[in-house]
Design a protein around this nucleic acid. Sequence first.
DNA 1: TCCTGTGAAACGGTTCACAGCC
DNA 2: GGCTGTGAACCGTTTCACAGGA
Lengths: 211, 211
Amino acid sequence: MPPRISDSTVRRLSHYLRGLEEAERRGVPTVSSQDMAVWGGTTAAQVRKDLSQFGSFGKRGMGYAVPRLAQRLREIMGLDHPWKIALVGAGRIGSALHAYPRFRERGFQCMAVLDSDPEKIGQHWGSTVVEDVADLERIIREREVRMVILAVPASAAQEVADRAVSAGARGILNFAPTRLRVPPEVSVANVNLVIEMEALSFDLTRKARGG
Amino acid sequence: MPPRISDSTVRRLSHYLRGLEEAERRGVPTVSSQDMAVWGGTTAAQVRKDLSQFGSFGKRGMGYAVPRLAQRLREIMGLDHPWKIALVGAGRIGSALHAYPRFRERGFQCMAVLDSDPEKIGQHWGSTVVEDVADLERIIREREVRMVILAVPASAAQEVADRAVSAGARGILNFAPTRLRVPPEVSVANVNLVIEMEALSFDLTRKARGG
DNA sequence: TCCTGTGAAACGGTTCACAGCC
DNA sequence: GGCTGTGAACCGTTTCACAGGA
């Protein structure tokens, strides 16, 4: 029974891994928790606590062997193998995401781009052809898609999510400003740009008032 | 000296406000903390705690008067007046953000779109013309821009951020996968899509393993 | 000596439970 | 009776401090 890992820990692990891979490229042999703390925007103690939840990867007095720790972190995060994803919504956000090179670099393979708009269906996006969202279930099943990026209007998000889940998708990156209801075996990450802007508005307002 | 307000509280306030404005439109006169809890994906007690940090807005036995609370929340969050923003980076993400109608609906007025690419400078985006990022400081000052959306490559993000801050910007929505260093009077919200995907990867991997 | 791994303490956010007002 | 506002309890995360191995 694995203990609960907090969301903030997971985010920091991403940062550690990014730093480790940069160090790997440079041929740095070992790093200290202090080095990783800088990458993760945290403290050395926090880094060690984070890592200790998964095992003991360092050597006292020495630090951590970069290739070994990077490999272990990739395994822990499930990034030691590619993920097959599908992009639903071929609007502007969808187009930007599809062109975003870092997804592919990180091992997220886009198996399909889907939309409901007849104007968009059939368009060529690089080597990908936009397909009909009516075929969502079949495509997810046939191409073994495990994650879906939802870049559809809020009004369609829940329905598309339900269908994707029923076809076997287990992770959803949701750009629609809606709280999706999904079964517990499914994970959802929400990206809500208006909330981010409103949080900035709050912060700035508070700083302007309170000092 | 206002007490610290947690980030999670701020996000919930956004949700409460969205629900309140929907209720306002429908002419609902009062709501309970339980109603708001549903909007914010939390509990009634949490709603009351959140609100209590800013004052007492409800009536015991009655609930909260919708228009009054909505107005107070807009004031608290600094959403009772428009915000002037600028968009730096006229690539695909920038283009998607510029077309995103919810920013404008929510009172975020885009005063400029900037890029360094001569091909893009001069392009017409609706009624906006893409301008040269070399004029960033002048434009921020002249048009009283307070927030900047950074949709530029990671390699340019810090430099653009520094220049925006020096010209008077105080909020940054950062899409570049970099941790920006800014003075304490400046607030930054990061949107890091790879981290969101990696968090999904972690979750799914963990669920598949642990049960 | 250097730096990790880890219990213990401190902190902050959430939940509980109830007093108080409508 | 119903629902808010809030101190107190609870719980998870972060920080501290140090024991222990290289």
